[in-house]
Simulated scan of single mutants.
Amino acid sequence: MIRPDFHEANRLSWNAATVAHNRHKPDQAGFLRGGGSTLFPEETGLLGTVQGKTVLHLLCNSGQDTLGIAALGAEVTGVDISDEAIAFATRLSEESGIAATFERSDVYPWLEAAVNAGRRFDTVFCSYGALCWLSDLGTFLRGVAGVLNPGGRFVCVEFHPVAMIFDEQGEPKYDYRMAEPLAWDDGIRDYVADSCGGLTPSGPVAPAEPFNNPHPCYEFQRGLGDILGAVILAGLTLREFHEYEFTNGWKPFAEMKSLPGRRWTSPDGKPSIPLMFGLVAERA
């Protein structure tokens, strides 16, 4: 069931967090103009060649990855629920000189309207902490299938549900899947600051004042079987699936081993666990 009440609370929390996150990232427009990209090899590898293709980036946040895809030659539309994120993304597009279209909306009414209007794309993309904000995964993926061209692909790189079992100290605390959303009274936090440069490829800046989000947020925890099952039930054919024992950018636990390329993995002496997954699914 779609829960617009939770989505609205999350919109407010993201509006506040987006401002905090972007204050850590210096001269993003200059970074992009100079050929910089926030995309990791996992995304570009799964996306494949996008030159001349139409790409829909759902839950695009502030548009950095959207513009990275556009710089590869795609015609890209980014959609996000946050007013602050879309406003920032639009400015970043103008200031970087990389063309993309950004539209502010909750993803559910956006997809419904797009399907009804006959809008179609070669690729639909989402990544990194996107699926946890969706109250109804089945409806979302049916909407994704509805806006794909025949032969079009849904590409997703996401944090692994197994990693979400643990708290910040790496101790098991949460159920693998939850019937009700997980409520965070302190809202979306400044995880950019906590990731020790992993999420600031344009260069680190001095830490800003501590951030306290006044708006709570709600996340939806699902198992990997729930996610893959919803992909299949939406009528999409799974073409690729990968699990990764590292994270890109985000540092999920206090004790992590740093890897080259702004990656984090389990520290020496501790078992490795899957921390991300990537998938490609195709519409017939």
Rank of each mutant, 00 (worst) to 15 (best):
M1A: 07
I2Q: 05
I2R: 13
R3D: 14
H7D: 06
E8I: 00
N10Q: 14
S13D: 02
N15L: 01
A17W: 10
T18R: 01
T18N: 06
T18K: 01
V19K: 13
R23V: 12
D27P: 02
Q28P: 00
A29S: 04
F31L: 03
L32Q: 02
L32C: 02
G34Y: 00
G36E: 05
Q51P: 01
G52M: 00
V55F: 03
L56I: 01
L58V: 13
S62N: 10
D65S: 03
G68L: 07
G68N: 03
G68I: 08
L72A: 06
E75C: 01
V76K: 05
V79I: 06
D80H: 09
S82M: 06
A85Y: 12
A85M: 09
A85W: 14
A87C: 02
A89T: 04
A89P: 02
R91Q: 10
R91P: 00
A99I: 10
A99F: 13
A99D: 11
T101I: 12
R104S: 05
S105D: 02
S105C: 00
D106S: 09
V107Y: 02
W110N: 06
L111S: 07
L111K: 07
A113E: 08
A114S: 15
A117K: 13
V124I: 04
S127P: 00
G129L: 00
L131P: 04
L131C: 09
C132L: 15
W133G: 09
D136C: 06
G138K: 05
G138D: 15
L141Q: 12
V144N: 11
A145N: 10
A145W: 08
A145V: 08
N149I: 10
P150K: 12
G152I: 15
R153T: 14
C156A: 12
V157W: 07
F159A: 07
H160P: 14
V162P: 06
F166V: 09
D167Y: 02
Q169T: 06
E171N: 02
P172T: 09
P172N: 09
R177C: 12
M178P: 02
P181K: 12
D185N: 09
D186P: 01
G187M: 08
R189E: 07
D190A: 10
D190M: 09
Y191L: 03
Y191T: 03
V192H: 07
D194E: 14
G197F: 15
L199S: 10
P201V: 11
G203H: 13
P204D: 15
P204Q: 15
P207L: 05
A208L: 08
A208I: 08
H215P: 04
P216S: 11
C217L: 14
E219A: 15
R222V: 11
G225K: 05
I227W: 15
I227H: 14
V231I: 13
L233C: 15
L236H: 13
R239Y: 04
F241S: 04
F241Y: 15
H242R: 15
H242I: 00
H242L: 07
Y244A: 04
E245M: 11
F246R: 08
K251I: 09
F253A: 02
M256D: 00
K257D: 06
K257L: 13
R262H: 03
D268S: 05
P271F: 03
S272D: 13
P274Q: 10
G278H: 10
R283C: 03
